[in-house]
Amino acid sequence: MVVRNRTWIAAVLAGAGALGWWLTRPCDERYLKSQLVRLARTLEKSGPESVFETAQRATAVANAMAEDVIVESGRPELGTVHGRADVRQAVAQVRASVHELQIDLFDVNTKLEPGRTTAVQRCTVRAVGRLHDRSERGTTEVEVRWIRQSVGWRIGYVKMVEVVRPLPDA
């Protein structure tokens, strides 16, 4: 009887261990989601910061990008940004123009393409920027394309998805 009980306990523990491993196993989808969340946290700004910190954050964001990254901002004032250096500059500009910046991500879906060297992420981004007593908020769907490079996963393309297309001007 004792042997049988021990067998059951061992089986349950092994099953729990396997389930725990499966739930927490390293996988590209989970890694890319965590990277995106980390990027959003890096972009956020909670109050005044020094020029050094602005540059440091902008560099950290740019380092997540491929050298020839393309970012279609969907904002007329920023347009399309080409290359890591320009991303760094654009991020620094945006950070300098707001006192606070809050970014929330929802519905992050990651799909690895065949070969597992590229991945497409879609998510809903809600951003709130505050400047003095004025705040501006926006919600958009964003598409992020990741590329697996020798140094790891890097972002090759970012696009704001136009869910609602404005009417043409008169």
Binding site: F106, D107, N109, C123, T139, E141, V161, V163, V164
Partner: peptide, 13 residues
């Protein structure tokens, strides 16, 4: 209700 990347955030129009 207009869907974006999922069903957690929706536009109302």
């Amino acid at each position: 209700m207009i869907r974006l990347a999922g069903d957690h955030v929706l536009f109302l129009k």
